[in-house]
Amino acid sequence: MYSLEHKKYLKKIKKDKITTIIYQITIFIIFITLWQILANLDIINTFIFSSPKRIINTIINLYNKEHLLNHIWITVYETFISFLSATIIGTIIATILWWNKKLQKVIEPYLTILNSLPKVALGPIIIIWFGAGIKSIIFMALLISLIITIINVYEGFNSVNKNKIKLMKSLNATKSQIFFKLIFPNSINTIISALKINVSMSLIGVIMGEFLVSKKGIGYLILYGSQIFNLDLVMSGIIILCIVATALYYLIYYVEKIYEKTTH
């Protein structure tokens, strides 16, 4: 039972949304069509630039003959393992550091060094330690997202309002009560946004790891394609990776939405 003005307002918002979507789809269609037309007219070399048609054929081919789903699954699996362990281990370490301020002060410079070090430089060592297999890939991805998780979650713990801590102390709360009743629940939002960063960090790590060692996975497909100069395969790998990365991001996004709904 809205007023006429409000109905107009709602209509305008809806119209804005629809035009945005139309623009987005149009850009996509123009890009793909142009690419295909240029390829058909031999203006671009399809051997180097591939073409939408060739990419689709390659993906179908991969699906039929090369166990495409298996490759995708391996990458997703490695990402999940490293991302979940980074979040859990990172949160635990951040908790220990919160509990023990002295320890935090002592190891702070080491964390800074580890955080600024490009982890891919450790690739060769990791391969020697863990062997050329899935373990190395997961460890690499874990390393990339772990340090940043520790830093983010620890900062989240420390940004809890001082008055709330004072309140807990005035109620005679013990340190563990302060942590479990205040610090941790207050930081769940921070931990969820750490999840969002971690899932893309872990994917970066996994692809890097697959470039270095693997025989399976999307990163392997891309690297293998470039080695045999099959650009169709490289492009297909990148397209699949785009889709997987977006799907993973939205998965976490919906977890966040569900959490928000349960608390309000």
Partner: peptide
């Protein structure tokens, strides 16, 4: 009993659960 300047209510707890905080703690 100490009442602070800011109410410092916990946003993730409902009103009842906020009021029960002290009882939970002791």
């Amino acid at each position: 009993g100490y009442m602070l300047q800011q109410d410092s209510l916990f946003e993730w707890r409902n009103i009842l659960s906020n009021c029960l905080l002290g009882l939970e703690i002791n």
